[in-house]
Write a protein that binds this DNA or RNA. Structure first.
Lengths: 328, 328
DNA sequence: CTGTTAGCGCGTTCAC
DNA sequence: GTGAACGCGCTAACAG
């Protein structure tokens, strides 16, 4: 039984509207200082807390922005959540994280109203959600590695840094370079894969694909680890591994260590995403660094623009990921 | 302008209640099959989506459980978020993650209604929030390393495994064992610290404290890293480090590597929490493993009990953390 | 089987 | 300065 406006109005023999006024418009001079202070005090004393749902209903505005993401884990996603939370909070909004999953049923949380949505990654999933769900017409901006281009979006292109990464490995004299990735429907469109394949072809080398099922985050690394072990035992030791993401790279490193192989002497490893952990390995893992902070900041800026002016022409931006060669 | 119940009622010349009925009670046989199907079809066609806020207001039930946490980062916290999300979802609820921060102002999100709350860690913060916020009397269960004992709670005691960890280090013949932790008000009550100090004293060894400011998660590791570097340069090389958490341990390892020191030959390192990453380091990092999954599961169970029966006597449980000696 | 009514907690006219 | 009345979108009790 939370205490409501009318609870405190009743106690004070006032009307709810009066109480509402002092609790909302702190600048409203239409109320006597006396009642203003009285109301404020008893509200506090009674432990009044506004019901945000009711307020949203009445105002048509929630002061909430939703963050739709296909996952909140592993750390790459958590970072996005953290960064968006920070941006959004500092503008006086609160954030609602909605884990929409990679596929399957709609989540209940998506039915809670918000003033706008930041949709991370997985453009196709977003479009599908918007279409099938007939989403209320709140502003949406899509951002991440994989965006729907029909919306406002902030994308990041991995093609160039992936090509650099491959160039780097090849320049090191590595010949057997394998591409390690979870199996996905979009494999052949993925810029990492494209860059890999093109680079290998151009260098006159044979492409080697190591793939594993896309399993839940909780076991992703260990599957990557096992996959590498199995692959090496079956097919011998590659000179280098170009990995789909840092999680895969880290799993792979562990697998190589299991087999007594050294990094980078025996096998060079390159990851992707640039999670902090890669710097803390020994040796540090070479990776493609996605400027997450900039990405989130710009997405939030786009969303703010759109919330202010719904008729804006479509907003698009691309942030630059960079390959960083490190010890591995 | 989302489409509402009355939009579709109007279109069909029905009353909103009829529409509401078919859209809610899918088992309700009080409606003719004809209208049932008609309504369902046009609802879908018009892209109807229920407004959860309005529904909550009318029903007095949200189908949401809130997860209050002092942080959603680093990965230890993200894991908790993930595990709770999974538990809660599989029971048909959706979850609302509320980052209440370690201190300071109340967050707006806390004003959104929920049917119950899972409060992770930081019992004092929770109690403060409940008190000062005059929280609506929804069920709350507190869980984590640091619980309020006045509520339902699932705690984990680190004293025993910490003692084991210390015993382990001492049995390895390490003499200079330092305790590395962020500075906190509760330092001397923290079971890790207590176990450390007692073990050192009992073994006739000198306690050495290495501490650093509690900085935001984004720079926590690098501060730990620098702290260790500075400490070693000033005070020489300890034989072992007993670290407050895995983040600290990982930062410390990196710092030691920076100085050309080897783990565990020169310095042994022990962490705490048991995040996955510790297994993927080379060598794997010894740590105290907190059974997060069990903890979250039991907390959710407690909350379900409480939601069903508010008059239940207070529920308490303690899960067991275990020290695992690994390569470091 | 379906419509009418009331009310969830709150913000907001429009009177007084 | 303050109160009465209405509506946000929806569910639930009660009629019919």
């Amino acid at each position: 039984m939370p205490v409501t406006l009318s609870d405190i109005a009743e106690r004070l023999n006032l009307s709810t509207s009066t109480v509402s006024r002092v609790l909302n418009g702190q600048d409203d001079p239409l109320i006597s200082k006396a009642t203003r202070e009285l109301v404020a005090a008893t509200a506090k004393e009674m432990g009044y807390r506004p019901n945000a749902a009711a307020r949203a209903l009445a105002k048509g505005r929630t002061n909430v922005v939703a963050l739709w993401t296909v996952s909140i884990f592993p750390v790459f996603y958590s970072q996005v959540v953290r960064l968006c939370t920070e941006s959004v909070k500092s503008s006086g909004y609160s954030i609602r994280v909605v884990d929409i999953g990679r596929s399957g049923a709609r989540v209940g949380s998506i039915n809670w109203p918000s003033d706008g949505v930041l949709a991370f990654d997985s453009g196709s999933r977003i479009e599908q959600l918007i279409a099938s769900a007939g989403h209320p017409k709140v502003p949406i901006v899509n951002f991440g590695l994989n965006c729907a281009h029909s919306l406002d979006h902030v994308s990041v292109n991995l093609l160039k840094p992936s090509t650099e990464a491959m160039r780097h490995l090849i320049s090191l004299g590595r010949k057997r370079i394998a591409y390690v990735a979870p199996t996905e429907s979009e494999d052949f469109k993925d810029p990492r894969c494209v860059a890999y394949y093109d680079a290998m072809t151009q260098a006159g080398l044979n492409a080697e694909f190591v793939s594993f099922d896309r399993v839940p985050p909780a076991v992703y690394r260990s599957v990557a680890r096992q996959t590498i072990c199995g692959y090496v035992q079956d097919s011998g030791v590659p000179d280098a591994l170009f990995c789909y993401d840092d999680e895969t790279a880290i799993g792979a490193c562990r697998g190589l260590h299991d087999l007594g192989l050294r990094i980078p002497e025996d096998v060079a490893v390159v990851g992707c995403n640039g999670i902090e952990e890669t710097q803390y390995h020994n040796p540090p893992i070479s990776t493609i660094i996605v400027p997450l902070e900039e990405m989130c900041r710009r997405a939030w800026r786009f969303l703010q623009n759109r919330m202010i002016n719904p008729d804006l022409p479509i907003q698009e931006a691309e942030v630059k990921a960079v390959f960083e060669a490190r010890g591995s």
